[in-house]
Amino acid sequence: MHETQARRGVRRGAAVLLAMVLALSLGWQRTWADEGRQLIPVGKAVGIKLFADGVLVVSVSPVQGTEETRSPAKECGLKEGDILLTFNGEKIRSTEHLQAMLAENGETAAELTVQRDGKTLEVTASPVVCEDGGIRLGAWIRDSMAGVGTLTYYDPATGSYGALGHGITDVDTAELMPLASGSIMETMVKAVKKGQRGDPGELKGDFTVQRDVGTVTVNSNEGIFGTVEDAGFISGEAVSVAEPEEVHAGEASILCTISGSDTRAYEVEILRVNPRSRDGRDLLLRVTDPELLETTGGIVQGMSGSPILQDGRLVGAVTHVLVANPAEGYGIFLENMLTTAG
């Protein structure tokens, strides 16, 4: 009698525990909007600096100025888009660091650790000596990038931010820049190259003498993310985040900076919602604001990350411009940015 009741008690306890686990699991799947997260839509242009984890191979080519024209990089199997991580077991910190190690190594065969498509491999390269005495691999490499983008949101509760709505890719390889460190800086928009059909426009910013205001810790397909260390340049009220199913075709607005540090709202129209896109093209939108059309022609490079608002809520960020029609472009759901931000 007592044993049977005990067993039933265990089964009831297990059922209660299972229900609790399921409830917790479902709770974790709730969206940021369900939790009522309040974020400040920013829309300010910022300077962005990224430093690579290792160095990125932009291209491989024969080394000029040698008795025998050859490319050690090509011979050992290096390809465009590869990331060079170590040289003879030592971590590569920059292009200058690799050049210094090459000079010390000379023509001796060197072991390279390479990252390709998420996998790590080892190759052996035999550098060549040029007529000027320099040691070369026959690979063009890059270790950093800088440019202008737009801050999408700031979370006053955590100090975190999201920007761009898409990743920062190398201009030659179209690969995501492998991130070691990065920063965002205050910037002033000095000029605008107006977009035209077949010729995307561009915001031109001056951030060379400005101060860092935050770090970049993630470079992903859904944007860059990090922490704001000095929130003094951020203003505005926090608003709720819309769930994707709440976003609809119709009137909306974007926040962006197209002159100096003046951030303003401009009218746009959401033409189509693509809830299953997942490639930064969740929304198709058209700029309808006469002033913005007159100044920029629509969406230009540097406006990526401009927050999109509809019905008083933050719904997404501008990501792409249609080259054939700069008045139109795409946007990403903010929820997709927040999911990547974690």
Rank of each mutant, 00 (worst) to 15 (best):
H2M: 10
A6L: 14
V10H: 14
G13S: 09
A14L: 15
L22V: 11
S25N: 15
S25P: 07
L26W: 06
G27I: 09
Q29N: 14
Q29C: 05
R30E: 14
T31M: 12
A33N: 12
D34Y: 08
G36W: 04
G36D: 02
R37Y: 09
P41D: 07
K44W: 10
A52S: 05
D53F: 02
D53W: 04
V55K: 01
L56Y: 06
T66N: 10
T66R: 11
S71Y: 10
L78Y: 09
L78V: 04
K79D: 12
G81Q: 05
I83R: 04
L84F: 04
T86W: 07
E96P: 00
E96Y: 02
H97T: 03
Q99R: 04
E104W: 08
N105H: 00
A110H: 10
E111C: 00
L112T: 01
Q115V: 02
G118Y: 03
T120L: 15
V123Q: 01
V128M: 04
E131T: 05
E131Q: 11
G134V: 02
G134Q: 06
R136Y: 04
L137A: 01
G138D: 14
D143C: 01
S144D: 06
S144Y: 00
M145F: 14
V148T: 13
G149K: 14
Y153M: 02
Y153G: 02
T158M: 14
Y161Q: 08
Y161M: 06
Y161H: 11
A163R: 04
G165I: 07
G165F: 09
H166G: 10
G167N: 12
T169W: 04
V171K: 15
D172T: 10
A180L: 12
A180Q: 13
I184C: 07
I184G: 15
M188H: 15
V192Q: 05
V192Y: 04
K193I: 13
K193R: 15
K194H: 07
Q196P: 02
P200Q: 04
E202D: 01
L203K: 09
L203A: 10
K204W: 10
G214V: 09
G214I: 09
N219L: 09
S220P: 00
E222K: 07
E222D: 06
G223Y: 01
I224W: 09
G226T: 03
G226F: 03
T227Y: 13
E229L: 15
E229Q: 13
S235Q: 15
E237T: 08
A238M: 10
S240G: 14
S240P: 10
V241H: 08
A242L: 06
V247M: 05
C256W: 03
C256L: 06
I258R: 00
I258Y: 08
S259A: 14
G260S: 02
D262L: 04
A265D: 10
V268G: 01
R272H: 11
N274T: 07
N274S: 12
R278F: 09
G280K: 00
D282K: 11
L284W: 11
L284G: 11
L285V: 07
R286F: 09
D289A: 05
E291A: 10
G297T: 02
G297W: 00
V300L: 11
V300C: 13
M303D: 00
S306A: 13
I308D: 08
L309G: 01
L309H: 03
Q310G: 06
Q310T: 06
Q310A: 07
D311V: 03
G312Q: 03
R313E: 10
G316C: 12
A317K: 13
N325Y: 04
L334E: 09
T340M: 06
A341S: 12
A341N: 12
